[in-house]
């Protein structure tokens, strides 16, 4: 087996720039977790099915387990760790707390980031839109009801906060 050639990448994660050489086969998820320590990127299935590894790539939610790190070259990435501002939680995170939208929490980072993507595109989502937007994020603990409630509450909160 030939030694794999390393590929230079440069990207921004949660507002901080990273530059380095990466083995091409390294998935973005493993790169974020192992090289950069963003372990909020959870791995549930490693083949694109569960959504636990979701991150925002230039603002759009994607699954980092089926993206190569080299493909993120030049991109801006947000992981769950980059959502809260210091002590202040993002309204969606806060709503997940308030509505008890989690149990073991393993799906939560992916759920929250998928909801960020949704609310950016549809600030007033219907329940059906919320369910469709989260359809690719599996939760094995909660049964989803509180998750949907939390997203809906977060949408309202963001709206009221933005009103002058």
């Amino acid at each position: 087996m030939k030694a794999p050639d390393l590929v230079p990448v440069s990207l921004e994660v949660n507002g901080v720039r990273f530059e380095g050489d990466v083995e091409p086969r390294k998935t973005l998820a493993d790169f974020l977790r192992e090289e950069l320590g963003f372990t909020g990127v959870n791995l549930g299935c490693e083949h694109g099915v569960c959504g636990a590894c979701s991150v925002l790539l230039d603002g759009a939610v994607v699954r980092s387990c089926i993206l190569l790190a080299v493909q993120a070259d030049g991109c801006k990435i947000t992981t769950i760790e980059g959502l809260a501002r210091e002590e202040k939680l993002h309204p969606i995170q806060q709503a997940f707390l308030d509505h008890h939208a989690l149990q073991c929490g393993f799906c939560t980072p992916g759920m929250v980031l998928a909801a960020v993507d949704l609310l950016k595109r549809s600030p007033h989502p219907t329940e059906i839109q919320i369910r469709e937007a989260l359809s690719g994020n599996l939760c094995m603990c909660t049964g989803y009801v509180n998750i949907v409630r939390a997203v809906s509450a977060a949408a309202e909160r963001i709206q009221t906060a933005e009103k002058p």
């Binding site: 909020g40 760790e81 997940f96 707390l97 008890h100 989690l102 929490g105 980072p109 929250v112």
Partner: peptide, 9 residues
């Protein structure tokens, strides 16, 4: 929950 929603499980 706080550590879970912030990705610090």
């Amino acid at each position: 929950d706080r550590r879970f929603v912030t990705g610090r499980g």
